[in-house]
């Protein structure tokens, strides 16, 4: 194993589901990617190209068929044991017997934070995702977008070193989504965490990321890695920058070509 300072180091990762059976799926093929500390990397690509699978492999929720993943110089397994991951799943995944506040506190409970710390962190996080006053609501009393914001608050609550976010804003309306984008960018700026972010929205990916990774489907491969060389931190006005449009258009064309090639 070579010395390296990457936050995430993915080397020749291949994932084959149901290998050797008739329903075999090659979800990822020979993925290699280095993510530096405090980077914001977005994964973008057509549905079913293996974005969620890649996030799960990084978090050691799935084992790669071949290849290996290192996180801050440790094995993915060790990083998981060290509680380095904050995972926002594609579905909100709240526990319906817990109130909103209790859901946010779940990781803190597992990690042994004191009651006061838990309460304080939870109310801070809920403020961040604009859900003050909903502490004692149950998940089924919230809209889908609100539920997803609770799950973001939960992932942020313990300041994980690596945030893995699977389409966290997919269920939000345009206005809330824009506010959440600004908020996430602020959190990232403040906390110095590394973020791997999956999205279907090209403008969102360009606005937030330091790099965008484009995946092609069946089998999932990296088609292109694009540096987003827009100034940081980004204000909303970036979205009027001509270079911003260039990048968005470039990604849009490449993605169209990928999807066209598949069909």
């Amino acid at each position: 194993m070579t010395e390296n300072n990457s936050a995430v180091s993915i080397r020749n990762v291949t994932k084959i589901f149901n290998q050797g059976r008739p329903n075999e799926v090659v979800a990822l093929e020979d993925i290699s990617l280095e993510i530096q500390p405090n980077e914001f990397v977005s994964l973008i690509g057509p549905s079913g190209c293996g974005k969620s699978t890649l996030l799960r492999i990084i978090a050691e929720l799935l084992q790669p068929t071949r290849g290996e993943v290192q996180v801050y110089g440790k094995t993915a397994h060790q990083a998981r044991l060290d509680q380095d991951y904050g995972f926002v799943f594609q579905s909100a995944t709240l526990y319906d017997w817990r109130t909103v506040a209790k859901n946010v506190q779940l990781p803190l409970e597992v990690m042994g934070f004191s009651r006061e710390q838990r309460k304080q962190r939870a109310s801070e996080m809920l403020k961040l995702v604009e859900l003050e006053g909903f502490e004692n609501h149950y998940p089924w009393q919230l809209s889908g977008g609100m539920q997803q914001r609770v799950s973001i608050a939960r992932a942020l609550s313990f300041n994980p070193k690596l945030l893995l976010m699977d389409e966290p804003f997919g269920a939000l309306d345009e206005m809330t989504r824009e506010r959440m984008n600004l908020e996430l960018q602020r959190i990232w700026d403040r906390t110095q965490t590394t973020i791997v972010f999956v999205t279907h929205s090209i403008p969102e990916a360009v606005f937030l990321s330091s790099r965008v990774v484009l995946l092609s489907p069946r089998p999932g491969r990296i088609t292109e890695i694009l540096d987003i060389d827009l100034p940081m931190p980004r204000a909303w006005e970036v979205r009027e920058d001509p270079h911003y449009f260039e990048l968005v258009n470039h990604l849009r064309d490449t993605l169209r070509a990928i999807e066209g090639g598949v069909q």
Partner: peptide, 12 residues
């Protein structure tokens, strides 16, 4: 499965 994955993600 995702409810379980959540627990595994912070090594419960």
């Amino acid at each position: 499965p995702t409810q379980l994955e959540l627990m595994h993600s912070f090594a419960a």
